[in-house]
Write a protein that binds this DNA or RNA. Structure first.
Lengths: 119, 119
DNA sequence: CAAACACATGAACAAGTGCTCATATGTAGA
DNA sequence: TCTACATATGAGCACTTGTTCATGTGTTTG
């Protein structure tokens, strides 16, 4: 993508030093991209609700659907997203599949977010 | 929205207890919705990059645009989103507007996410 | 194997999002 | 007040996303 060469703030010399310093300490683009992808997963109320539900107890797809009052299909689609992002794991027992949180990072991320909300 | 009355998993009696318990400990829908809205803000690489930049130093709009190699307009739009969510604050000095992180919650949320990425 | 159940998945569509472009607002200086 | 600069904002558009509906896959039971 090309950028127009717009005249920028003229205190350039002063700010350039700060900009360069910031640029050097910035995580690589790819990592920032991955981080945004992760938060994107948490950025949907259906998925957040699923995660909070699994925080309490391991649950099968059907139970989650009942709990949330959405279709089994919708839940299944979202569980796939969560599974791909390694946020939940699952085990099969006969016909039913039980989902649970993959690790404690999920809890910590949710907690930090909640803390900001409840200021 | 109406839901089709689909026959659900038949161990209903067993699971219903778990479902009810989970339902009771679940945060209210509105809170879950707000939480998702918060994470949605972090779910964009442009905004995440802006936040990481501000983590180092207070910066004016133009510097951020230079740093990120995007247009001033794009930065300004995103800063508005961050401002509305109380994730950044700003101060005016003549023609230029300096932005900085609103509080330390932002840092903690980013950190928790990074930790999950870098597993 | 056939039937029933739990779950997964693909297509399609409506709603939301982030960018660009053009323009408006606010500020400082002549 | 006129001009230049820094930033903000509105409209339009391409792209993404979450849901629904229909159907496919996998498992158990008869």
């Amino acid at each position: 993508m090309e950028l127009k060469s717009v005249p920028c703030c003229e205190e350039a010399l002063v700010h350039d030093a700060a900009v360069d310093r910031v640029r050097q300490n910035l995580p690589p683009d790819e990592r920032l991209y991955d981080l945004a992808e992760l938060f994107k997963i948490f950025g949907d109320s259906t998925r957040v609700k699923i995660l909070y539900a699994l925080l309490e107890s391991e649950l099968c797809v059907c139970d989650i659907a009942k709990l949330m009052e959405v279709t089994q299909s919708a839940v299944s689609h979202q569980l796939r997203v969560l599974k791909n992002s390694k946020l939940v794991k699952f085990r099969r027992e006969g016909k039913t599949v039980y989902y649970s949180l993959a690790d404690s990072h999920v809890i910590h991320i949710l907690d930090q977010g909640m803390e900001h909300i409840c200021e």
